[in-house]
């Protein structure tokens, strides 16, 4: 159907009759997402200052290879890693949460607005006429979000374990690990909690646990799971924002402690 006769049709880029500050939302999204991308890329490529005492940066967890006591395999890096190529233990971790967030339904809507202006905001004119949506490559790959969910769920378990480990401090004199609580322990625990709230409220998870059924009452366990996921899903955007900011801050906290710039205060 063509609406060409309608004189008000097809406003130019940014043209709108809206009176509110519609540009603030995409601008803030653009600024925060860009800052996170720049910081996380930089931090992930450093390969140092990513652990401090019992704390391990979430960008480096699980540390499959590495130099810290948290590493899973007793080697600094894989033997097959090309000598000329930059190495960081984060290279085995970061692609999974990045893939999960990039394909997340909330983030998709947010970055299509903020980075592609498609549209810049509701009822605001767009810069392009052509539009393929998520029907063609590469955006058709967004449909694989559920496959990024699997490592994301595993990461939650690993980060929860890291938060537990962050409660056990090595006694410098006896060498025995003793229970304790530092500010960093709280930072890591909160990180696992926020990432858990974000991941467990995932739209794909909601579908997989029960949303795909029309008669959920015949599968009571799936219905309960669907309700639990739906409960978190109601606030998916908030979980997404808080967890994004906090995971960046957690890395920064561990990094600055490891660099000796910040002091990790012990509470217990």
């Amino acid at each position: 159907m063509s609406n060409g006769a309608f004189a008000l049709k097809r406003a130019g880029f940014g043209v709108t009759a809206r009176r509110d500050a519609w540009w603030i939302q995409p601008l803030v999204t653009f600024a925060v997402f860009s800052a996170f991308i720049v910081y996380s890329t930089w931090a992930g490529m450093q390969g140092e200052y990513y652990h401090f005492g019992p704390y391990l940066s979430p960008f480096y967890s699980p540390e499959l290879f590495g130099e810290s006591p948290h590493r899973w395999i007793d080697a600094v890096k894989p033997t097959w890693w090309p000598a000329w190529m930059l190495w960081s233990p984060a290279f085995f971790v970061v692609p999974f949460p990045i893939g999960f967030r990039l394909t997340c339904y909330y983030y998709r809507g947010a970055y299509y607005k903020a980075f592609w202006a498609d549209p810049p905001n509701c009822a605001v004119g767009e810069p392009r006429k052509g539009y393929l949506g998520e029907n063609a490559f590469p955006l058709i790959l967004q449909n694989l979000h559920r496959y990024f969910l699997i490592p994301a769920l595993a990461l939650i378990a690993i980060l929860a374990y890291d938060a537990w480990v962050a409660l056990w401090f090595k006694n410098a004199t006896t060498g025995v690990y003793e229970f304790g609580l530092g500010v960093g322990s709280i930072v890591l625990a909160l990180n696992a909690f926020l990432l858990g709230g974000y991941t467990l409220g995932c739209h794909s998870l909601r579908h997989l646990v029960g949303g795909g059924l029309d008669r959920m009452s015949e599968s009571p366990a799936r219905m309960v799971s669907w309700r639990c996921v739906s409960c978190l899903n109601n606030r998916h955007m908030r979980w997404a924002w808080f967890s994004l900011v906090w995971v960046g801050f957690t890395d920064l906290y561990v990094r600055l402690c490891a660099m000796g710039i910040w002091t990790d205060w012990r509470i217990i």
Partner: peptide, 10 residues
């Protein structure tokens, strides 16, 4: 065309 929806939530 559900694939055209890019989840703006408008």
């Amino acid at each position: 065309g559900v694939g055209y929806c890019n989840i703006t939530k408008c």
